[in-house]
């Protein structure tokens, strides 16, 4: 029973991902197509398991596609943040001294930016595209990863086995890639898992403000926004995408925290 409970977050994430990526082609209604006969219909309407929205599009289809877009953006942005953050942090931590100082000052300065505003600015300035959404988010989210990796690198540098490897004649590249990074892979993975829900939140936030992906494409944030607009007459339109979003974020957070606690203890 307890084991089942522990495995629940991973299973839910998997379930949502599989449904979002595999299920849509098998649904009777495409997410773009308007069913003129059923507008704002409740759940269990024939052909619309979860009902339709206020212009008659199938809610289940739209939620699944929205999930697909949101997770895609999240994974891409998390990867961008992983690449920039790990390289930046590892370099700063390895070099130490003045280089480290300058590199981390830059991170500090970027932290002081009202980062949500910067993302909004980027969206407005360069126009909305999915590519830009995740580059923008990833470019901001890498800061935490850089700090974490640098901290790990500084701590590892003090460990005698790194020194022993240098004494054995290893080159810096060998030490970083064969000794240091493998030893922090678990921590990096944990923070990566924690970055994904953050990115999901930011993406939804932007979409909610109308700055994310554009119609007829959709995302969880847009669906929640639409749902919130007419929640008084049709709460389902808020509950379904909102529920998926929250489940995804909670499960990923729980998974990430569990990994982090296990590996940083």
């Amino acid at each position: 029973m307890r084991r089942l409970f522990n495995a629940l977050p991973a299973m839910l994430v998997l379930l949502i991902l599989v449904a979002a990526w595999l299920l849509p082609p098998f649904l009777p209604w495409d997410y773009r197509i308007i069913d003129w006969d059923h507008v704002s219909s409740p759940a269990f309407t024939p052909g619309h398991l979860l009902g339709t929205d206020n212009v008659g599009r199938d809610l289940l289809s739209r939620t699944l596609i929205g999930t697909r877009i949101t997770t895609m953006v999240a994974i891409a942005a998390a990867t961008v943040s992983l690449l920039i953050g790990t390289l930046w942090g590892a370099l700063a931590g390895w070099c130490g001294g003045r280089i480290d100082n300058v590199m981390m000052r830059i991170v500090d300065a970027l932290y002081a930016l009202p980062f949500m505003f910067v993302v909004i600015l980027l969206m407005v300035v360069f126009g909305r595209s999915i590519l830009l959404v995740f580059i923008g988010i990833g470019a901001v989210e890498w800061l935490t990863m850089a700090r974490v990796v640098r901290g790990q690198m500084l701590a590892l540098r003090q460990r005698p086995f790194i020194l022993a490897s240098e004494a054995a004649g290893a080159s810096p590249r060998f030490i970083i890639f064969r000794h240091a990074l493998p030893n922090m892979a678990a921590v990096i993975l944990a923070y990566l898992l924690l970055t994904v829900p953050q990115v999901v939140m930011v993406e939804s936030f932007l979409s909610f403000l109308g700055l994310g992906v554009q119609e007829p494409m959709t995302s969880l944030g847009i669906l929640v926004k639409e749902g919130a607009d007419d929640m008084d007459v049709f709460p389902m339109a808020l509950m379904v995408p909102g529920g998926v979003l929250v489940t995804l974020v909670i499960c990923l957070t729980l998974l990430g925290e569990r990994l982090r606690d296990r590996w940083t203890a």
Binding site: S204, G221, A228, L245, V246, V249, T253
Partner: peptide, 8 residues
Amino acid sequence: LTALPTFV
């Protein structure tokens, strides 16, 4: 709570 976005 931390996972609930304000817009939800």
